[in-house]
Design a protein around this nucleic acid. Structure first.
Lengths: 218, 218
DNA sequence: ACCTTGAATTATGAATACAGAATACATGAA
DNA sequence: TTCATGTATTCTGTATTCATAATTCAAGGT
């Protein structure tokens, strides 16, 4: 086995995103670098590097002299992110080879139908959903586009824990995934793209009601 | 006047992008942090922060233990970036208020026609082009999308200096801008969007021949 | 001659130290 | 009481230092 040596900043970034998924951090909360570094068992330097990366992805905000804080959530921003990801994933689909998409359709269908046990871990459910989208986009030859999608989705992680334990939402999601896959199996990429857009739009609408209004701290 | 206080990392980032526009750096070139920090008159810490940001935007690559280097240029990557920006700008246009776009059309036309003097500074010419696109997208209400466009375009700056002193290319560009603006004036956003896509595609084709093939360093 | 091996050098990744801005707090005047 | 002002404290932004991985180069063996 080739043992992995990755920069601390990347590991820290992932750990912070994980905690974000778990809802550990309150949106809008200021980050105390010394405390957080101690908690993670690293020094401030790689921690700050990770924070800067996350700020670049929109997960955090930074203000001169005031450090970093988790960007406050808002239904406006969530809508904006959904519009962006919908556009990017649609583009990725359009750039993919239609034949390869058709070949992959059965696998996509299978995965969409086998949604995880309702009592499964929240993290596992989210992972299942992510995996489906990753598989869908996997045939897109535009690597930069795929990286970009990953990065933008990181910025959406602040919202994912809000849907915890909502079975009906997940069923709708699975349903829509099936529809997309069926279009692909039929070789109709345009229809699949449209369905994918709808998937994000409806996901947006489903979520928008559960986003708390967070007043901007003075 | 409110005097500005901005983090060094941001100023460094901009300075590096400026130098990139000027073609100061060879693509694929390794960065020596100590040398560059001394050259800029700052310490390695804020420099590294800027480098990490730029790596996140795709301007640089980073390898464990090997530090940062300017990402090598390739026609494949340039094509990918053009596809992405075309998609994002089209999306921004579709999300804009059609009425506001129509109102802005005359200004866009004026600006497109008044392309700068052929003998103007290269940087000024590029700025002119950027300004036109910024104005075009300015009415889009999706702020995150606009930030994203800016970020992706930063990743394209490695290519801009390659078109230095190509008058014919610029005339084609201005021509296409006029066409887009005229569609908007007519209230036909869909046609304008299509023309915008074409603008990027043709820009891609025009450029692709002048991108040198850089063999991957071992 | 070519490849391997190991010491010396160089540069990065991470930790620590330091200076100054932002905040909190307390004291005093209106 | 309330507001203002000065002071102490906290935390960030930047510089410096330290440890170790990566590279270079030379010596020795095949």
């Amino acid at each position: 086995m080739a043992i992995q040596r990755r920069p601390l900043r990347e590991q820290i970034r992932e750990e912070l995103l994980l905690r974000l998924d778990r809802g550990d951090f309150a949106a809008g909360k200021d980050i105390n670098e010394v405390v957080l570094a101690a908690e993670l068992g690293v020094s401030r330097t790689p921690l700050r590097e990770a924070l800067i990366t996350l700020a670049g992805e929109g997960v955090l905000e930074s203000n001169q002299g005031r450090g970093f804080r988790f960007a406050p959530v808002s239904s406006k921003e969530f809508r904006e992110l959904c519009e962006i990801v919908a556009g990017l994933e649609s583009l990725a689909l359009e750039l993919s080879d239609p034949d390869e998409l058709r070949e992959m359709a059965p696998e996509l269908l299978r995965l969409a139908r086998s949604f995880p046990d309702p009592v499964a871990e929240q993290s596992e459910i989210e992972w299942h959903d992510d995996e489906w989208h990753d598989l869908l986009l996997g045939k897109c030859p535009n690597e930069r586009l795929l990286d970009l999608v990953t990065s933008v989705k990181a910025g959406m992680r602040r919202y994912t824990h809000l849907i915890a334990g909502e079975d009906t939402l997940l069923e709708r999601e699975a349903e829509e995934h099936c529809r997309i896959a069926e279009h692909l199996r039929a070789g109709d990429v345009a229809a699949a793209t449209a369905a994918l857009r709808d998937n994000w739009v409806s996901g947006m609408e489903r979520m928008t009601s559960r986003i708390p209004v967070t007043p901007e701290p003075a």
